[in-house]
Design a protein around this nucleic acid. Structure first.
Lengths: 113, 113
DNA sequence: CTGGTTGCTACATAATATGTAGCATGTCGC
DNA sequence: GCGACATGCTACATATTATGTAGCAACCAG
């Protein structure tokens, strides 16, 4: 299911006709499982199957599609020990690592309702 | 399809059976248009129609669904001047504002291929 | 060769998104 | 009051995308 088989030019990203990189990035990260994959790989490499388990047994179809997207985007790479973040991917991870702490506060503010 | 047989209780978030807030957050942000909406509202409120234009004329169906999700999550609210970030939403925005700068570098590293 | 991994794909079914249209409510000038 | 707007939101048929189950070929260890 390489993205080039039947759909002709299909850019790496969708939507962003503007060419603004942030739009391309938001689009990529806004696809199902993308953020989750990056999160699971944040501190260790995982084989495709281990990643599947980590992702609540998501279907392999989407997972492979997302892995393909993320590889095209240069954020992850397939290494001898499985999938892992590239240097660029690690940069990205660092920018939303604070999300973890926010999630805790957010969760509390929801429960406070 | 194990998530829910029909859809009675429909929690705010999907997937996260673990109860870990980060998973709930990643799931919410990983739905199409969610990140984009937050981004567009980052520095001004927008009416639902203005938001639609800002989002490359996304279909109103999903947009309303996402607005509903984000309101349930307490990240945005409908104010007299349109939709805007809540205090919590602004906190979240601050955590991924650095994404903008990353996007620029990332874009360059892609073009360098 | 057997038994185990790996990354990845096929395919039918279910869930989501897209486009286009339109509703109900409100607010303005008149 | 009226009409002409704009607001938030919804219907619904059509595409697109995800799910779940199964299985492939390649690789390596025993």
């Amino acid at each position: 299911m390489a993205k080039s088989v039947s759909k002709p030019p299909k850019r790496v990203v969708r939507g962003s006709t503007s060419g603004r990189p942030i739009m391309a990035l938001l689009d990529l990260l806004g696809r199902r499982w993308t953020l989750r994959i990056l999160w699971e790989l944040r501190e260790r490499s995982l084989t495709s199957r281990a990643l599947r388990e980590a992702c609540d047994d998501a279907s392999p179809t989407v997972l492979q599609a997302r892995l393909s997207d993320l590889r095209d985007a240069g954020l992850i790479a397939l290494q001898p020990d499985g999938y892992g973040l590239t240097d660029t991917g690690r940069e990205l991870k660092d920018t939303f690592l604070p999300l973890h702490r926010f999630a805790e506060r957010w969760s509390k503010s929801l429960a406070a309702d």
